[in-house]
Design a protein around this nucleic acid. Structure first.
Lengths: 266, 266
DNA sequence: ATGTCTTTGTGAACGCGTGCACAAAGATGG
DNA sequence: CCATCTTTGTGCACGCGTTCACAAAGACAT
């Protein structure tokens, strides 16, 4: 799970709650599977189970789109697939650029499913001149210098940032200046963008840390250790004055973190 | 942003709200950056800006952990880093296994930052016999047959699933049976797990679809098209009866979707 | 020691999202 | 045409999360 949107907090677009929008792709996937099995209709209960949500929630979600069901029967699969696709804007083609063709960028580019849902990789962009021209997933990598031209020429409005954290904000600024209005950010940085630009963030490190939290709690409950288990002595609470600014003093942890390629920020 | 947790909905662990837990890694990252610059203290306002959140929210979040600040001064950076790390369980070592060493699995394995925050890649596992023994990121890939042994021998409790969707549930079941209690799922599937097992999901496709929704809305507002812009004719609303079950009839969209490697589900 | 000024910690109000529970709608059978 | 049965659509209540706004706490200067 990507770690939430950044801007556009609760814009409640056209009356459709953000929480509902975030679940529509889930429904769509379940419906597509049913469609492939030529299932004509589904009840809210069945579909909810397939999507892993509550049936009441699903019905309420659909009610924001309109009354597309038939009481006593359920929902027509094909029709619902179309309606949700249209609502999500998947009936049109969305060219996407991927910036930063490292391990992750290559993995994204190689993902074949891009084309299947209205998304099309328009270009791969990397700052390394040695990468230029080299084909990844059948698409030649282009140099960052071409960024603006690529975006305007192809009318791209969605960009994916898979660069190291250090380059992310700079790339972001250039994308926005070139006309990009939606960004999917894999770099471990808080991007600042002007109003009107959407940023969504995918952050593996954060997901793992959240898991670790719950994992620790489970373990702690078993042992029954109310506070922390034995281990490292807690450092001085530093109640009043922090140790004088001694620069470079405590070289605590300074591992290769925060500026790593992407995928797993800190 | 990974697309939300699955189980353990609102457990409110030890009084710390889920929403707060999800933000702690964000604060930790900002604090670590300050620590590396040897900044001794920060105000809630400064730190909030760095983390991209509201200062009131940040203070309330910290209040769940205890009173670690000093009024009129702010928070001691080092001390706060320690407290949050401890709260998140990052002061201990978490061995992690990655299952499914395709493009994405390899990207994850190559990510150097794993070790920097208490996470350690204990093993890479893939079902392809041809991969066995082949080193990825310096770690030899092991075959799925070894899965149970690897997990029990290393005391692994966190697993990352980067397999195709078709294999995800099966892999998940085996991980859980072997003792895994936290799963980070990159496959485009709703995993079903027993109580007590946490699942978090990272789904690129969903993120892109959410962006597309907002993107469409922006474009629609500009043009002023209230409903949908011109384009494909809306299929028959199918008001009453859906077309008879004619199996294999409508071979609508059936592209290579849903069972693709990972990273970008549908 | 006293006053001023900064910043935390939190009480309270508000809004969104979730889930319950039921009435309305419509299909289906007689 | 009427009765029954299934399933939707939604009004309502509840709880979590966010935000405001302020009193309390403490640093710092005089």
């Amino acid at each position: 799970m990507a770690t939430g949107r950044t801007h556009r907090p609760a814009t409640r677009s056209r009356g459709i709650p953000e929480a509902t929008v975030a679940r529509l792709p889930l429904y769509l996937r379940a419906l597509t599977a049913l469609s492939e099995r030529s299932v004509p209709t589904v009840s809210s209960e069945e579909l909810a189970t397939a999507a892993g949500v509550n049936s009441a929630k699903l019905r309420k979600d659909f009610s924001y789109l309109g009354s597309y069901g038939t009481r006593g029967v359920g929902y027509d699969v094909e029709y619902l697939v179309y309606q949700i696709s249209r609502e999500l804007g998947l009936t049109q083609d969305w060219p996407v650029v991927i910036v930063g063709i490292g391990n992750l960028g290559a993995a994204l580019a190689n993902y074949g499913g891009f084309a299947s849902r209205g998304f099309r990789v328009a270009a791969l962009i990397d700052a390394d001149p040695a990468m230029a021209g080299k084909p990844v997933a059948g698409i030649p990598v282009q140099h960052t210098d071409e960024l603006e031209k690529i975006i305007t020429d192809n009318g791209v409005s969605i960009g994916v940032i898979a660069t190291p954290a250090g380059a992310a904000q700079q790339v972001c600024d250039r994308l926005v200046a070139a006309g990009i209005t939606s960004i999917l950010n894999f770099a471990p940085t808080v991007l600042s963008v002007p109003d009107g630009v959407d940023v969504r963030k995918v952050d593996l490190s954060i997901e793992l840390q959240i898991l670790a939290f719950h994992e620790q709690r489970k373990a702690g409950e078993e042992v029954g250790a109310p506070e922390e288990a034995a281990g490292a002595v807690p450092p001085p609470p530093v109640p009043h004055r922090a140790p004088p600014g001694a620069p470079g003093a405590d070289s605590g942890r300074q591992g290769p973190d925060g500026d790593v390629p992407a995928v797993m920020p800190a």
